[in-house]
Design a protein around this nucleic acid. Structure first.
Lengths: 398, 398
DNA sequence: TTGTATGCGTTATCAT
DNA sequence: ATGATAACGCATACAA
């Protein structure tokens, strides 16, 4: 829609396979010239990794002393500890994670299981999780990109014995039944964006309901009455919550108004179609609230093509605050989800669950959203708001 | 710049801590009602995970037979195998990864080490890596979000014995010296976006040079002569290559033109400043080529505010093809980097390195780019082009 | 304080 | 075909 296309070769086509390099050279100083460099010391033979035994031999002590010294368990003379540490450093000794976790029962690793996600949401979530994991001394085993339940189940199985806990981002496929069948009993788990309260798992959700509610309140506040809603896919938990929030808000804040809800699928083009459909209505809405930003962007495109002024003739709002929202014309008002914080909180919850088994088990948490008022919804005075994580419900299941 | 602000509360503020839930209920059917659900069978006691011994006992065979049967190593009667499989299924037996890799010397896991990256690039890269890893039967241990060399070194150490190989995305901090000091000798590694050819590691780069060159050719082709360039940070490899490509292209395709290069830092606001600076020039450029899209977007903002028509008065082009590029007005012409493919190729290279040690070692590969012609650079006939990965150089270091 | 010995769960090498 | 047993690298209870 926005782009059209003819082909234009980007790279140099030359006969010889390796000559691209040479061609560059002839054009310019050769950017591919690279410093040759030997890595590591390449000890004799294939001794690629030193073990605790090697260190023990080198330091002329037993493996037990090496273990004690390096783990700070005490019971070792300062001088022998020094000797051991030096030997370890000399040999570039690093404890073998698998071996250690075999006896320790701790992998210091958490898993992240998520559906096939593109873009900002995924990266921000992982970012939040990873940062917090590191601060807890945990590593992150990621398994993303599965649409199928079979994929996800396999990934879950493969994590057995490799993780101390797991963060699971729910999806239509990874639902209650799936978790019941595949989530190992006793494995600390945090469910993100899930409608199930599953066993001992903690649940952390986005406050879609309140976010939508607040946006409706803003729209009503700036004088809009007939607000249409573009809903998301029915099998999506977020989408359902957002629609519920919209219905509740309208019932409360604009009572008596007949609800206008057209369905979309979170995709840009479904938003475009919804926009066209709304324009064709007998009574045109004063504002359109799309259940996510991509659909709002599609709407905007439809309005632009029809020559409708936004927000002059129709106000527009979205949900998510994807980066694009700021850059469309006019900039899109939306509900911001603090994704990295969601990840961070999930990780905190999980760490707690791991360190104090049962502590946060079966608790349900909710992360508030902000609304970001930009130009697309009229009554623009700008700004954002923030709320904090609130514990909603915590049955004493233990 | 684009957003201004007043605060608007998004969530309901109520006195009681837990009452948000109740409030919602009073507004609407309670969206937080969640099905209670017992997970797993909860075998007796704390037997949370069955081991191979349990299966052996259950099937009345030795652990050796269980191992053979489940690994398809042969040497086991169909009926005993059946009995073993049934016992395993009954006990929900899953082999303990750590224990297995201790003896196998294979973790079936690869590490991904990357700097603190936001947005699309990170997510697409991980996506490409993860998808391909899965198809190779490998898992992904991610360690992202370090700016410091110390951070990265610690992450690298922690991967010892937990991964069979590693993909490293270079950054100013993770450079030749860093790798020499920290990359374990003998560990299969693929360096992404790196200017060093390090030991036995394979290197995979984006063809920044050719991408920039092609875009300049396009700009010149549609009649622009005085093309200004907004460069990126000097310590960034991509930025340097792109500038080199620009210089080379201009020298070849627009000889005699005096070069106009203003420096930026890849950030939007530096692009904005560069835009203002260029507008203030005695001789205004016909086209501006920014070393990345964010700077181009900043430029565009500066031009818009100055009332300059794009592409009418000044053409504009960027690099990366971030999602935003399509949505600004006018849509931004740019050089597309196929990031997921980069990740996929890196993973392929690594899998090769793992399975056939030394096979792809010390090879250098380059992934071509596409140019995407949209409206911002004039001469708009639309479209993209694609090139494929080409092997540039492969010393016989083995 | 230090060393010896056992076991973690698995695969591999022998026997039988 | 099957079973006993020795690794794998580490931490730890116990002995010295």
């Amino acid at each position: 829609m926005l782009i059209t296309g003819h082909l234009a070769r980007c790279c140099f086509r030359v006969a010889a396979k390796v000559s691209t390099n040479i061609l560059f050279t002839s054009l310019h100083e050769n950017v591919y010239v690279q410093p040759t460099l030997r890595l590591g010391g390449a000890e004799r033979g294939r001794q690629v990794t030193a073990t605790i035994k090697d260190v023990a031999r080198e330091a002329k002590v037993s493996v037990a002393s090496v273990s004690r010294a390096l783990n700070g368990a005490g019971g070792v003379t300062p001088e022998t500890e020094k000797r051991i540490r030096e030997a370890a450093a000399r040999l570039r000794y690093v404890p073998h994670g698998a071996a250690r976790s075999l006896i320790t029962k701790r992998t210091h690793t958490v898993g992240a299981l998520m559906p096939d996600l593109h873009g900002e949401f995924f990266s921000e979530l992982i970012r939040g999780i990873d940062l917090e994991a590191r601060s807890h001394g945990l590593h992150l085993l990621v398994s993303s990109s599965h649409d199928g339940a079979e994929d996800a189940a396999a990934a879950l199985r493969a994590m057995q014995g490799r993780v101390d806990g797991i963060v699971i981002l729910s999806s239509p496929r990874v639902d209650a039944a799936f978790l019941e069948a595949n989530l190992p009993d006793g494995l600390p788990a945090v469910l993100l964006n899930s409608e199930v309260k599953a066993g001992a798992a903690a649940v952390l959700n986005i406050d879609n309901f309140a976010g939508t509610y607040a946006m409706v309140r803003h729209l009503v506040g700036v004088g809009h009455d007939r607000i249409a809603f573009v809903s998301g896919p029915k099998d999506n938990f977020d989408a359902r919550q957002r629609e519920a929030g919209f219905r509740a808000a309208m019932a409360k804040l604009a009572p008596g108004t007949s609800l206008r809800i057209v369905s979309g699928d979170f995709g840009e083009s479904s938003g475009y179609r919804a926009g066209l459909e709304l324009l064709a209505s007998k009574v045109r809405p004063q504002a359109v609230f799309a259940a996510n930003d991509m659909m709002a962007v599609g709407c905007l495109q439809a309005f632009k093509e029809a020559g409708i002024d936004v927000p002059g003739e129709i106000a527009l709002a979205g949900f998510d605050d994807i980066p694009i929202a700021r850059y469309v014309t006019p900039p899109l008002s939306t509900v911001r989800v603090r994704i990295a914080e969601l990840g961070k909180n999930a990780m905190d919850l999980l760490a707690d669950l791991i360190n104090r088994p049962g502590s946060s088990a079966a608790s349900v948490h909710t992360l508030g959203c902000d609304i970001v008022v930009r130009e697309s919804c009229g009554g623009h005075r700008g700004g954002t708001s923030a709320t904090t994580t609130k514990k909603i419900h915590r049955p004493s299941n233990r």
